[in-house]
Structure formats: structure tokens, C-alpha cells
Design a protein around this nucleic acid. Structure first.
Lengths: 243, 243
DNA sequence: TTAAAAGTTTACCGGGCGGTAAATGAGAGC
DNA sequence: GCTCTCATTTACCGCCCGGTAAACTTTTAA
């Protein structure tokens, strides 16, 4: 066969293979191809292909958590998977496309994790929604902040990327909207005083975001809790004063 | 100053010189070595050396504004100066040291731009401080948001860097503290109702940060203004209700 | 059974990046 | 004038990273 580069077995003492990807080549794999439920496929994608994409998303998430956006290398993502990093290039069109897809992925996850009750009274409902934003869904509370960390880093970086910014804007609008809705409901029902619901919703959303950012960037573990108390004491209190 | 290397349309097919730094070797310079006031030196640094460091800081700022933290290359900084990028390595100990120094630099600037009145009544004082955080000092209003953009990006990245995080924590504490102080003053003087000043100050600081972040990351130009109105309407109003 | 299509791996690379070494310039002190 | 030090430039480099090409393997569909 075409011995392309002379590299016979002898060669250099340590891995001649460039790409020190070596992370650890799935030694004991037996974890990849299982759970292959032959359900209805979605769109025109193979089941396994869809599965792989999800594996890549999860790996991206882990790599992003570890290294941060700035220092994220394709190699890092590869090391978080049982597959080699090159499969990424088969399923995505380069690094930027991968990140963009991941962004949609993580936003969808966020979206999907929101549980709507809807039947409670506005007072309770409002607090429940705020809590959900601040502390995550009741179940699966672990990992909430890991996700948030990644989300928040991408969020900040969006200032340099118009495309990403739009995604975040849409998402933001949905969150804010859902809070405004509850406030409006409360006003209609007469349990809240008659304020500008948009402005109030905006304020609440802002406080949520700030507490999140403070916890993540500055490491203030108690920021969400404190923010929650402050809202109770200084915002909700004045909201409910029907007077 | 940005459009340095517009010319040389021909562009040598393959510049043998590696380092396509070529930007364009300060053609029209005549801007570097002057203004050399032989004043008393500070510490053990030459005047010119100190000057150069500042030039580098400014260049770093510009490069950071343009490219964002993630995509910042030493080369980009070089292109924002009249000097070559290698001088950076003479004055700083590599990229990380440069960024750290820049961080201190921009925080100092922030700090220095804060104007304290102190004599006004707490009501006015509180609003004035908030305004300053939201809109920048009255003079030199331009460039305020450029600085903020850079500040905020570094701020978010601090989650991945303990050393930087500490710097931001200190700074944050100073800002928050100054607001808490005003609130306390107001309570003592009896113009504000008797609330937990710490918590109130925290809330106000959080709202400021959120509005800033929203304007920068999401591009909501009116975020500061809206936040200001929301605070007036929903927070300050209830604060002043001495009742 | 088999051949094409889809997916994955192995091997490899060009270019760009941060950094360094040595040559050059510019003063300060004697 | 000479030299020694500080400051800056010119020239250059090794390595690391994203990406590709082709071999290989598994799945799909006749």
C-alpha cells in the first residue's frame, strides 16, 4: 500500500500521530450504539445521526463548562465524547455553525424546562415564575447552574454577534412576556394595583438577570435568594398594595 | 486611526516575512516621541515607559472594542498603536499579564470617573448616583458605552478566572457600598422609610447592572432609561413613603 | 447478497498565533 | 566621543488549532 509518509512502526518514541487527541480513545466504550429505539424519525435525518448530534451537543456543553467560550477548542469537545472530534465536521459546518446550533439547543432546553401552572392566582403565579427563573425547575435542580453559566457566557458574547443576539432577543422577549402576562392578569383581577405591566415585568426580569449574572460572574452564591427577598420586600409588596 | 493599512492593493503574493504584521509601518507617525515632559518620574519607571504603557492600554481598549475578548489577538492591539506589537512583550509579561493590567486600568478609570456630590439630600443623591451608573458622568458622555461594553465583557469572563473575579468583586463592593451608604443616610435623616439598607442597595445595584447588560448584550438602547423610570416608579416611590 | 449511502476514524496539513532573539536607535552620564 | 542602558524594531519560529482527504465500517435498501 502507498506508504504515504515513511512512518513505519519504529519512528519516534512518543505518538507519531500528530494530533495528540489521545484524550483516551474509548477504551471500554460499549456505551455508544445502544438505546437505539427505532421510533419515527424526525425530518430527513437518520436516527443515529440525530443521536450523534445530541451527543455532540452534550459534549459541547461539558467542554464549554470546563473551558469557557473563549478557550473552547474543537479538541476539547472531542475529548468529552466517545467519538473522535472529526465527526463534528461531518454533522456541522465548522466551529461557528456548531456553536450556533448549540445556542439554539440550549435555548430550547431552557424553554422546555419552564413549567406553567396557569391556574394559580397571580400572586402565587408571579412568585412561582420568578422562582423558576432564579432557582431552576424543582426537579433536576442540579446542573441548573452549569447550564446557566454557559447560557450566560454566550449571552454576553452575543454583543459581538448579530445572529446570536437575535436568538437571545427572541428568547428574552418570551421570558419577559410571560412575566408581563402574569402581571397583567393580576391587574385585571384586581389583586395588583394598576401599574404599567410592561415596565413592571421588565423590572422583574432585569432583577432576575442581574442576580443570575452576579452569582455566575462574581460567585455570589446567595444572589438569587437575596434578590428574591428584595423583590418580595420592595417590589411585590408595593405591587399588591391595592389601596 | 483605525484604517491604517488601506493601501498596498497589490499585496505581495507571498510576503516572505512571515508575520504579515505589515499593517503599515507607521508611515505618518510623528506622534510618538514628543510631549516628553521631563517631570518627576513616578516610582522607578521612566516617563516614556509610563507613557508607552498607557498607549498600550488605550490600544488594547480599542482592539477589545473592535474584536471582543474572545477574538482579541496581540496583533490587533499592535495595529491600534503607532508602535509595533512587540513592545507589548517588553512592557508586559505576555498576553495574560497584559489583560490583567488592562483590567485594573479600566476599573481605575471607572472609579475615577465617579463624581461625588455628597451635600445634596439623599433623595437627589441616590438618583444622581444611579444616573451616573446608568448614563455615565455628565461630561464625556460619549465613549461611556464603549468602555462599558469592554468592562462588561471582561466582567462576564471573570467567571473563568479567579484572579479577575476578585478584582471585579472588590470593585462591585465599592459601587454597591456607595449606594447603600446613601440609603442609610436617607434612613437616618428620616426621608426614607426604615428598610434594610443593604438589601435595598443591592437591589438598586442589581437593576443597574441588568439594564447595562441588556443594553450591551441585547442592544436595547433604551434599557437604562426604562430601568431608571421603573426604579422611580416602583422602588424609590415605595422607599420614600415614610408613612 | 450485495452495492451504495451514511457515518466514523486515521492520518495529515497549512496557516495563524503568541512569543523570542538579535539588530537598531536614543538618551543619560562621564 | 564613548559606552551602557533602556526602548523599539526587524526578522523569525515552533506549536497549536481548525479543517480536510481518504480509508474504513456500519447501515440501508434492492
Amino acid at each position: 500500500m502507498s506508504e504515504l509518509h515513511g512512518g513505519s512502526a519504529s519512528e519516534p518514541a512518543e505518538s507519531p500521530t500528530d494530533d495528540a487527541d489521545t484524550g483516551d480513545p474509548n477504551t471500554g466504550d460499549a456505551d455508544t450504539g445502544d438505546a437505539n429505539t427505532g421510533d419515527a424519525d424526525t425530518g430527513d435525518e437518520t436516527v443515529s445521526s440525530k443521536n450523534t448530534k445530541e451527543v455532540i451537543m452534550e459534549a459541547t456543553f461539558r467542554a464549554l463548562s470546563k473551558h469557557g467560550y473563549k478557550d473552547l477548542r474543537m479538541r476539547d469537545i472531542g475529548e468529552e465524547m466517545d467519538l473522535t472530534r472529526q465527526v463534528i465536521h461531518y454533522h456541522f459546518d465548522g466551529k461557528y455553525d456548531l456553536i450556533s446550533s448549540f445556542l439554539e439547543h440550549i435555548i430550547d432546553q431552557y424553554e422546555g424546562s419552564v413549567v406553567v401552572e396557569g391556574d394559580a392566582d397571580p400572586r402565587t403565579e408571579l412568585r412561582a415564575r420568578v422562582d423558576q427563573c432564579l432557582f431552576g425547575p424543582e426537579f433536576e435542580e442540579f446542573s441548573h447552574w452549569d447550564r446557566m453559566k454557559v447560557y450566560h457566557e454566550l449571552y454576553t458574547h452575543a454583543q459581538n454577534d448579530g445572529e446570536h443576539r437575535e436568538l437571545f432577543n427572541d428568547h428574552y422577549e418570551r421570558i419577559r412576556g410571560s412575566i408581563v402576562e402574569v402581571v397583567e392578569e393580576g391587574i385585571e383581577e384586581g389583586v395588583f394595583r394598576d401599574v404599567d405591566a410592561e415596565r413592571m415585568g421588565q423590572l422583574v426580569t432585569d432583577v432576575i438577570h442581574a442576580a443570575r449574572g452576579r452569582r455566575i460572574s462574581l460567585g455570589h452564591e446567595d444572589a438569587p435568594e437575596e434578590a428574591r427577598k428584595a423583590m418580595d420586600e420592595f417590589i411585590f409588596e408595593s405591587l399588591e398594595r391595592t389601596e
